[in-house]
């Protein structure tokens, strides 16, 4: 298991497209950091209008912690795309390239192959999230300094003390990693269906975008289905920036995401084991 897994990772990291993701994360983080450097104060005063009418807020509001949060918020849609870029490609890309049939004539079971591809994609996702932590959090802290973090929810204004934030980021990154395993599972299933990698990558994105919109629409009909959509739970990392942290809700979200991940993985294994390889 270790040997094929390391080979799979070797393949992933031998491809230039893998590094596009790391480049994009860096670029997006830098663009937001630059934007915050130049126009962050205006952006903040717009967002904080409701508060600043009645309260004078002074100090290093636009600090690394807040900038990192803004970056994470913006990357909500992008990271799944970057993960789909690898996970969505992992089976369909090989089908398209023609290597899948050769791999499957080797004495390796299809279930094992799916699990290896799943694990390799998760390792890639983890590395991407660690990289995100480096450029979004540590680089922002380096550029903007430390400070108390304000978190504006639609109905609540939260202030977190600077010594009380780092652990929240670690938990948030851990949760984000869990959310990304769901994306990996989804992409992998779509990848098993397809014979080229564009389809599953686009389909993953389409599903994430549409469900994210449904998760955020305030309509009674959607409120009924919201708790069952994985996109509703994918933003559970934000819970760690609430006070008190809604652990029960986060645990519930983690369970829903795990359920989706395992369910989709199982579907992939079952489907892939029955699939005729005609590519």
């Amino acid at each position: 298991m270790i040997k094929p897994l390391s080979l799979e990772l070797y393949k992933i990291f031998k491809r230039p497209r893998t590094y596009i993701s790391f480049g994009l994360v860096t670029a997006i983080a830098l663009v937001i950091q630059l934007a915050m450097c130049s126009g962050g104060k205006e952006f903040l005063s717009f967002g904080m209008q409701g508060i600043t009418e009645q309260f004078a807020i002074q100090g290093n509001v636009l600090n690394g912690y807040l900038v990192a949060y803004i970056i994470l918020q913006s990357l909500l849609i992008h990271i799944p795309l970057l993960i789909a870029l690898v996970a969505g490609d992992s089976i369909a890309g090989e089908a398209n390239m023609g290597t899948l049939r050769l791999v499957l004539t080797k004495p390796i079971s299809r279930s094992r192959l799916v699990i290896i591809k799943f694990t390799a994609s998760i390792i890639y996702s983890l590395l991407l999230i660690i990289w995100l932590a480096v450029v979004a959090l540590f680089l922002s802290l380096f550029l903007f300094g430390k400070g108390d973090m304000i978190n504006m929810k639609s109905d609540t204004f939260i202030l977190l003390l600077q010594d009380d934030i780092m652990w929240r980021y670690f938990c948030a990154f851990a949760f984000a990693s869990l959310a990304m395993t769901t994306i990996v599972s989804l992409s992998l299933l779509l990848s098993a269906f397809a014979e080229n990698s564009i389809g599953p990558i686009m389909a993953t994105m389409a599903i994430v975008v549409v469900l994210t919109i449904l998760s955020n629409l305030e309509l009674p009909l959607f409120n009924l289905i919201k708790p069952y959509l994985f996109t509703t739970h994918m933003i559970g990392w934000k819970g760690f920036f609430d006070d008190p942290v809604p652990y029960k809700a986060i645990r519930n979200s983690a369970l829903v995401l795990s359920f989706y991940t395992l369910g989709l993985l199982l579907m992939t294994i079952i489907y892939f084991n029955k699939k005729d390889i005609k590519s």
């Binding site: 409701g50 009645q54 639609s154 609540t156 204004f157 933003i235 986060i250 519930n252």
Partner: peptide, 19 residues
């Protein structure tokens, strides 16, 4: 006395913690 505070949900994309 305080004024109301409200930001559009579409902007903040809140995590629904069931409250």
């Amino acid at each position: 006395d305080l004024k109301d505070y409200k930001l559009p949900q579409g902007l903040t994309m809140d995590y629904n913690d069931g409250n």
